[in-house]
Write a protein that binds this DNA or RNA. Structure first.
Lengths: 338, 338
DNA sequence: GAGGGATAGTGAATCGTTTTACTGAGAGTG
DNA sequence: CACTCTCAGTAAAACGATTCACTATCCCTC
């Protein structure tokens, strides 16, 4: 009844446990005839390797951890799928953690990853966890930051130039005649948010347009967009903005829904531009202009950087790949001549 | 340099390793004064429990596996988040696998879960894996089927009455005057797909409407919807359907996009109804009618069933919870008087 | 004051792999 | 022929936690 172990397999195949291990891991040559007997024994007993024992001996697991800000945001699931795809080429598997923007959850997952001795970690950090990540790295689990540039330069990172992305968004709004622009986003604690609004401010300053009115909310989900939109609608008509730059597309969708629900015409009364260029924003009630980020390439590149560190550890040389964002114009900012 | 282990902690605290373990797991009472010394030693050494060793000894991990059909489908990420939420109450964590509709990936993940000796598994199966699941169960990892009814009655399951859901969708289309209805879905190998189209056929037969024209595609994503729509558009005008029932909302979105792109008016020329009621379908260019499934409750219930089996194993009594779907009518099927 | 509980703590055995140092048996070489 | 070299395979020692059978106090009770 108890699950078979290597000893049982060895006994049935008439070899030693060491030989079974060699067959399993191809670590040393085994005569074809012997290997065949071992495989037959494995099949007969339904043997499945106990990964805990293996890990204990080897000191490291074969899984990589990834921690994302929000699994319900398609941008992050795209990254995760890309990572998963790339990892299968390296014959490793992925365990996904969802911090949901919460520092407490992030810490709980870091504990888990550390206890599991993951072979590496991809993370978009929320809280102040750099020292935790350094410990992880020093103990043999390399870390690569995703969608976040490492200023301290003690980790490799893959990011998008968020400053530039913010600049592109605001420049587009200003250049199409908008003069009173609101930024609706999550907390500026998030580097991405701070940089996007910062880049936008730059664009407006250059153009002599009034600075952004910044609405900070406590989440990056559609619901936050609804709340933000309602705050804007509560303003006196005279100071109501004529454009909204949302920190991501989910927020943009929430804003769009709340505004149209209140009878505001988009883009005529208020233009909306989002960030991430997710499929659903492109297919929203009014297709939303957005700043595209190359999720697929980011996932692949991050995984490759991580695997390089895993396979050749202790180099202490960290790479920083920065992708360029791209402005995608749709109906939500410009009356279409379509 | 090497990471500290219980022995180091014990030495520093001046106690035995057994006591350290008791502090860690609260398995036996420890004097407060002693516990304090142990905790100090843990902090000083930065000790983190090696989960592999723990698991090896205990024979089971504290993580639960979940295997979903498609992480980029919000319906499944909603379920996953709900499961994650519920599990934290039980102090366990979640490892998420994405089969992406592919039987080969599903098998690879099952291998992983089995090697890891997960304490339980939630799965929406793709391929023919029931015997694998039975083995998993017999070896101490209970399995609960999600979004799929177990006909063999050898697992607990949480599902939605897909037959009824299909019935509701088709009945709605027929009752609003549609007479030539196409079903655009993934492979009928998927139980959900087969039952949804089956239920729809029932509704049409009852009403004396022509049977569904079924388009089977190889995926359940938006791209499949686009392909399906193009096949419909290629039909002679005389036999072109006046309504589409999509197997899920992602497909419905793809269909909607392709149809409007081709100049077809929705719902005037062709009505569209989806399935799942995801947020993005409700906020699509034309808000899409859909069949709502209670993702959050499904995740919670499935987790509770699983935990019951984990905590009181070997009962051999399996429960089958079936939720009722709900028709949500939006603009894509009925001209709105709004 | 002997017996009987509690209460804290000990230390060796154990889980199932991988790995390392060895052992033989043939084969090739000077 | 003595020797080194491969090639296959063996047996035992790790890895680091948990647990189980004990021991040592201390306190209470009859």
């Amino acid at each position: 009844m108890a699950a078979a172990n290597v000893r049982d397999v060895a006994a049935l195949a008439g070899v030693s446990v060491g030989t079974v291990s060699n067959v399993l891991n191809q670590s040393k040559p085994v005569a074809p005839e012997t290997a065949k007997r071992v495989h037959e024994a494995i099949d007969k007993l339904g043997f499945v390797r106990n990964d805990a024992a293996r890990q204990l001996r080897v000191g490291q697991s074969r899984t990589v951890g990834i921690m994302v800000l929000d699994v319900s945001n398609p941008f992050f699931t795209d990254i995760a799928r890309s990572v998963e795809d790339t990892l299968t080429q390296f014959n490793r598997s992925l365990i996904l953690g969802n911090s949901g923007d919460l520092a407490s959850r992030e810490l709980a997952y870091l504990d888990l990853f550390e206890e599991q001795r993951v072979s590496g970690l991809l993370i978009t950090p929320v809280g102040n966890v750099l020292s935790r990540l350094e410990r992880l790295r020093d103990r043999g689990s390399p870390v690569v930051l995703v969608d976040r540039h490492d200023n301290a330069r003690s980790f490799s990172s893959v990011s998008v130039d968020d400053q530039r992305g913010g600049y592109l968004a605001a420049a587009h709004l200003a250049d199409t005649g908008r003069t009173n622009i609101a930024f609706v986003g999550g907390t500026s604690q998030l580097q991405q948010v701070a940089q996007r609004s910062g880049g936008a401010q730059d664009a407006l300053r250059e153009r002599g347009v009034a600075p952004l009115r910044v609405l900070e909310l406590d989440s990056m989900r559609a619901e936050a967009g609804r709340i933000g939109a309602e705050q804007l609608l509560a303003l006196p008509a005279s100071s109501r903005p004529d454009a909204v730059f949302a920190a991501n597309d989910l927020i943009a969708l929430g804003v769009l829904r709340a505004l149209t629900h209140a009878g505001v015409r988009v883009p005529d009364d208020i233009a909306i531009i989002g960030y991430d260029d997710i499929y659903f924003a492109a297919n929203a009630a009014i297709p939303i202009s957005s700043i595209r980020q190359p999720a697929w390439e980011m996932g692949r590149t991050a995984t490759e950087l991580l695997m390089a560190e895993i396979e050749a550890p202790g180099r202490g040389e960290y790479q920083h790949v920065v992708f360029q964002p791209e402005l995608i114009v749709r109906d939500s900012t410009v009356r279409s001549a379509d």
